[in-house]
Design a protein around this nucleic acid. Structure first.
Length: 598
RNA sequence: GGAGCCGUAGUUCAGACCGGUUAGAACGCUGGCCUGUCAAGCCAGAGGUCGCGGGUUCAAGUCCCGUCGGCUCCGCCA
């Protein structure tokens, strides 16, 4: 039944045929999207990567082709020769780009069959993701997935094109590199030639791209895979792709200009969208204050307000207690939406807040001039007045409160802000809202390890004016780092780097890295800094996340051809897998192998 | 490491709260009819290790314990 392709050559993509191709003899090859057998005439929707066209099998045109048309099933692969003809007015399909025409089959070859597919090849499916991944070759046949992958390709092409024209040189850095156990957990690769030693897959090419600056390649980029052995999320995979770049002899704005130009080109070329540059900028402190996060979604307002001062001497134990423990109190006023939020819904939000570590979620609802709230009875008259004035509370408002450590309050209220923004339809889904966050503190204090740690990474330059307080007031030091945020998603981060050895050593000292440890881990960089390192800076953009936002996908997995599940496994290849004991012996590695029959 | 939701025909789900006859529906699949459909239609039919293991019970898809897997989130992600 199956026939070889022989000398048949495809003349067109199914999805590309139009009325302009009328009367042409074409040869198509593709998959059967659906077949409709009317006993006489048979219709087949033939699909390839460009789309679908209707093929007609008419026994009066070709008895043999019609017979084959009767036998075919969904997802079989066929080749069709036939003539492009115009559909009559009443049989046109406006839902298909090819809907004005159809191909009348004169000759057919069945190239391959298919088992019955486990899920439909169409956009709107609701199928377990494990099943989709196990049959990824089918999942990727779905138009929406195909478009995501193609859109990703177009985006990379646009980025390369822009950077090439701007004088950047793409340079590859090794994937087998050295473990530097600062930051994320490394994926390790045992070295056979050096028993007991390991390579690490790079978390980013950070140190090597800085080395390239010292080498004089003053404008570098790379579309590069990075690896981090941490837990997965909807927007986090253990291997992901960055648009990584680094430039010598620049200031923050120069890097930002390149990124803005590149994103402008990408959106123009892949979406036909004009995005406005330069992007808005916001200081880290302002972002935390108003939005409770360093990646605010600024497509809508709904800002948080710090009201700690109002309750400094309050009798309300919950609020006062939070303050006494060094915490804060913040409020979120949902203007005029009291009618839209039921008590039941507020209770559900409270439960949600608890999963984030809050002890509860206080609220006040104003309706008919009445303040309804389980906590209002604990407020003094003065507190009520100051609250009303500060939050501009009016009839119809709902106010939510967070009182806890700054971390919990910001986490809970920033989440609540997003949930309510979405729920109440305050977000314009058609907008792409870019924002730079700058003036990050250089360090965070790690409570567990009782030491300062780099907020960005230890090669980030502090502001010149802060170098003198590095030793005695590290918490106050501001860095020359910048993050770029799109619709509340961090899509990239970068900084001006340290290019002087003495300052780099000071930073290592500030984060408690001993001289000999610094020497062992980063000795090559420190030495390079001693051989004429130019001032330089750069950024890394998360390619997968940008494609995710650009395509309106809910998960990064939908823009990666072969992603991993939350457990880091791949249902298609069944990676990771156990390995042969002989492989381990060669590597000088012992492991607890669960015995597994052949 | 922790929290939540989910797992029943090929697929998506109902059945579970309140244990009891032969586990249902839709789509898909198979066969038949059908010359203008495009989510084709009509008729007939097949299809189940209720994720897995253990427990309670006269009796478990349903209750209990454990475990595996998928998703979301916290921690983690310099």
């Amino acid at each position: 039944m199956l026939e070889p392709i022989e000398d048949w050559e495809r003349s067109d993509y199914c999805g590309c045929l139009r009325i302009k191709d009328l009367d042409r003899e074409v040869t198509l090859m593709g998959w059967i999207q659906s077949h409709r057998d009317h006993g006489g005439v048979i219709f087949v929707d033939l699909r390839d990567r460009e789309g679908i066209v209707q093929v007609v099998f008419n026994p009066e045109i070709s008895e043999e082709s019609h017979k084959k048309g009767e036998s075919v099933r969904d997802e079989w692969v066929i080749a069709v020769r036939g003539k492009v003809s115009e559909r009559s007015a009443d049989t046109r399909n406006p839902n298909l780009l090819t809907g004005e025409i159809e191909v009348i089959a004169t000759e057919v070859k069945i190239l391959n069959t298919s088992k019955v597919i486990p899920f439909q090849i169409e956009n709107e499916i609701n199928v377990d993701e494990h099943l989709r991944m196990k049959h990824r070759y089918l999942d990727l046949r779905r138009p929406i997935m195909r478009d995501n992958i193609i859109s990703r390709h177009n985006m990379v092409a646009a980025a390369r094109n822009y950077l090439n024209l701007e004088g950047f040189i793409e340079i590859e850095t090794p994937y087998l590199t050295r473990s530097t156990p600062e930051g994320a957990r490394d994926f390790l690769v045992p070295s056979r030639l050096n028993e007991g030693a390991f390579y690490a897959l790079p978390q980013s090419p950070q140190l090597l791209k800085q080395t390239l600056m010292v080498a004089g390649f003053d404008r570098y980029y790379q579309i590069v895979r990075c690896f981090r052995d941490e837990d997965l999320r909807a927007d986090r995979q253990p291997e992901f792709t960055q648009i990584d770049l680094e430039i010598s002899f620049v200031k923050e704005n120069d890097v930002m200009n390149v990124v803005e130009g590149m994103l402008k080109a990408i959106f123009k070329e892949t979406k036909g969208l004009e995005i406005e540059t330069p992007f808005k900028k916001m200081g880290y402190e302002e972002s935390i204050l108003k939005y409770g996060t360093d990646r605010p979604d600024t497509r809508f307002g709904l800002e948080l307000q710090d009201i700690s001062d109002i309750f400094e001497n309050s009798d309300f134990k919950v609020f006062r207690g939070a303050l006494d423990k060094g915490g804060i109190i913040k409020a979120l006023n949902i203007k005029g939406k009291a009618g839209e939020l039921s008590r039941k819904e507020i209770d559900a939000l409270t439960e949600q807040a608890k999963t984030l570590g809050a002890k509860g979620l206080a609220w006040i609802k104003i309706s008919g001039g009445e303040w309804q709230s389980p906590i209002i009875k604990f407020f003094s008259k003065q507190e009520k007045e100051r609250l009303e004035k500060r939050l501009r509370m009016e009839d119809g408002d709902v106010v939510f409160f967070g009182a806890d450590s700054a971390h919990v309050v910001n986490l809970v209220l920033s989440q609540l802000r997003l949930v309510l923004g979405e729920r109440l339809g305050m977000i314009d889904q058609s907008i792409f809202n870019f924002l730079w966050i700058e003036d990050f503190p250089l360090f965070d204090y790690d409570q567990n390890e009782k030491r300062y740690v780099s907020k960005h990474h230890p090669f980030t330059s502090p502001r010149e004016e802060d170098i003198k307080i590095l030793d005695n007031d590290p918490a106050k030091v501001i860095s020359k780092a910048y993050d770029i945020v799109l619709n509340g998603v961090e899509i990239g981060g970068g900084s001006l780097r340290i290019y002087r050895k003495d300052i780099q050593e000071k930073i290592f000292k500030a984060i408690g890295l001993k001289e000999e440890d610094a020497e062992e881990k980063f000795g090559f960089l420190l030495e390079a800094l001693d051989f004429g390192a130019p001032p330089h800076g750069g950024i890394a953009l998360g390619l997968d996340r940008i494609v995710m936002l650009l395509s309106g996908s809910q998960s990064i997995r939908d823009v990666i051809a072969f992603p991993k599940t939350q457990k880091g496994s791949d249902p298609l290849t069944e990676a990771p897998s156990e390995v042969d004991i002989r492989q381990l012996l060669e590597l000088g590695i012992r492991a607890d192998i669960k015995s597994k029959p052949e």
